[in-house]
């Protein structure tokens, strides 16, 4: 009768899974373009070039990101700021800034290398194009506008989730003052805007309680 017992055991597994799927407890897949899975907070998505609150660009054209890039997909050329009409607060600014998304491996080393947190990553991951030229993002496409919005490649796409670009990646959070123990749960990214002003990051205990986070 061992075979019958095994059969019933197997049927119980599939039956339980079916009930779990129908009630939504165990459902793994999503109807993707319509419903998107909640991404981890430190998701490595498309890059963004940030600005200071006064509208100045953060990039100083130092090319450290290009040097750190293991895929050599970043091309930067700096230029002296015009003293009367500066683009960035420093001596130089990023005159040319290009990222070849076809080569990028989304490792985030450029974000770590940046001394001014000018380049950060977002939660946007849908970057398919119909030709190879569109895979190269120029400064126009990477730099956020002074009002804090980042250009989306396909803003008219009915399925485009513009909110993904407003979500900064984990590096910003980890290096922000809030990342230090003294600021834990108090304030995040105090005063220095990334792509926005962030609500405090939950403490580690709270994160442990909330499963599925990051």
């Amino acid at each position: 009768m061992g075979i019958v017992k095994d059969l019933l055991k197997g049927l119980a597994v599939t039956g339980r899974t079916m009930i779990g799927t129908i009630t939504g407890r165990e459902l793994v897949t999503r109807p993707y373009p319509h419903v998107k899975r909640e991404k981890p907070q430190r998701f490595h998505g498309r890059h963004v070039l940030n600005r200071y609150p006064d509208g100045m660009e953060k990039c100083i054209g130092c090319e450290l990101c290009a040097g750190a890039c293991p895929a050599e997909c970043i091309y930067v050329r700096g230029k002296e700021n015009d003293i009367d009409n500066p683009v960035s607060p420093g001596e130089r600014f990023g005159y040319v800034y290009e990222i070849n998304m076809l080569r990028c491996i989304f490792c985030g080393l450029c974000v770590e290398a940046c001394p001014t947190e000018a380049i950060t990553m977002t939660h946007l991951f849908e970057m398919s194009t119909t030709n190879r030229e569109d895979g190269i993002y120029t400064k126009d496409e990477l730099l956020m506008s002074p009002d804090g919005k980042v250009p989306h490649m396909f803003p008219d796409d009915p399925l485009a989730d513009l909110g993904e670009l407003d979500t900064a990646d984990g590096w910003v959070r980890a290096t922000a003052p809030g990342g230090r123990a003294a600021y834990q749960g108090v304030r995040m990214w105090a005063g220095t805007p990334g792509v926005g002003d962030w609500s405090p990051e939950p403490s580690q205990e709270e994160r442990d309680r909330r499963s599925g986070d990051g």
Binding site: T14, G15, T17, M18, G20, T21, I22, E26, L27, V28, T29, R30, P31
Partner: peptide, 13 residues
């Protein structure tokens, strides 16, 4: 659909 439910999937949608 039933197979999908038993495999934690959605099936044809």
């Amino acid at each position: 659909k039933v197979l999908a439910d038993m495999q934690n999937r959605l099936g044809p949608m």
